[in-house]
Computed example of a mutant assay.
Amino acid sequence: MDASIRSFLDHLRVERQSSEHTLRSYEDDLTLFERFLEETRSAGGDPSPASADARRLRRYSAWLSGRGYAASTVARRLASLRSFFRYMRRNGEVAADPAASLRNPKQPKRLPKLLRVDEVVKLLDSIPVADSLGRRDRAMFETLYGGGLRVSEVVGLDIEDLDLDEELVRVRGKGRRERMSPIGSMAVHWIRLHLATREPRSASERAIFLNRYGDRLTARSVGRLLEEHLARAGIRSEASPHTLRHSFATHLLDRGADLRSVQELLGHRNLTTTQIYTHVTQERLLDVYQEAHPRA
């Protein structure tokens, strides 16, 4: 790995205090960029990132698209490059920022995938709760949907983050921003039952949701568990844990919640991020109209 990339990752880790997930993403993106530079350099050419100019970066964008990466993935990898070259420019390692004018590929507008209210209820009620792992899963998915949390936020919850009397949890979201999120009485009920049989591997393990070995659950494991429970419930859907967050927001708006409140509940920094859900509710209203109105 080039020294400039190591320095940038150290900067993110120490000065920006980025999460391990963020660091892995940047490392993966920049390692792929290094691979491109090595594969496409001319004989005797310089493969170091500092040698790349704007034309080379445009070639990299095309190289990514040519390998079948989705437009959203290409955009994320280019965003990592922009951050990297801004850092290089501030440190005087490049005279100009070659990524400043780099454009993202056009992305198709995709509305978030959702589960209907009845599907969410069916999913949650189908989770077997006779053993401790089942009660853990019921508590975890009730919390995901009840609070509209990201899966990373749910697996990051510690015992100290709970305020069950007030039905609140302290959540550490993107950019290490903290918020207090209501999770509802059903989630609180199942969390209490789960905690009664929670068995950490060691006394120092403070995570609420543990795997069968007593260690903190990973986001990947939560996704796998959701697939199992969807299949058990007979729900044919490509839903992910994030689908429960999308469903949470849409169901609130369907029932009259204002957009600003939903923004706060989701922990979005910008209202424009939340506005995607207004398009979802409009789509659903149009579907209802087409099905029910005699003159549609």
Rank of each mutant, 00 (worst) to 15 (best):
S4F: 08
R6V: 03
S7N: 09
L9C: 07
R13A: 14
V14L: 14
H21M: 06
L23E: 02
S25Q: 07
F33N: 01
E34T: 05
R35S: 12
G44I: 06
S51H: 09
D53S: 11
R55F: 15
R56Q: 15
R58V: 09
Y60S: 04
Y60R: 01
W63D: 02
S65D: 12
Y69L: 15
A71T: 14
T73Q: 12
V74H: 11
R77V: 05
L78E: 11
A79Q: 09
S83K: 09
Y87Q: 03
R90H: 10
E93D: 11
V94P: 01
A95P: 11
A96V: 13
N104C: 11
K106L: 14
K106S: 14
K109D: 15
R110A: 15
R110S: 15
K113M: 09
K113E: 14
D125K: 01
S126P: 13
S126N: 08
V129I: 14
V129R: 13
S132R: 11
S132E: 14
A139P: 13
A139K: 03
E142D: 07
T143M: 02
R150Y: 09
V151Q: 01
L157E: 08
L157H: 07
L164S: 06
E167S: 13
L168W: 08
L168M: 15
V169W: 02
V169P: 13
R170W: 04
R170K: 12
R172P: 10
E178L: 13
A187I: 02
W190L: 05
R192M: 08
L193E: 15
L193Y: 02
L195S: 10
T197M: 10
R201W: 10
F209S: 03
L210D: 04
D215Q: 13
R216Q: 08
V222P: 12
R224Y: 12
L226N: 00
H229K: 06
L230Y: 05
A233L: 07
G234V: 05
R236S: 14
R236W: 07
S237D: 08
E238Y: 11
S247W: 00
R255H: 15
A257C: 06
Q263A: 07
G267P: 01
H268P: 01
N270S: 15
T274E: 12
T278W: 07
T278L: 15
H279L: 12
P294K: 03
A296Q: 02
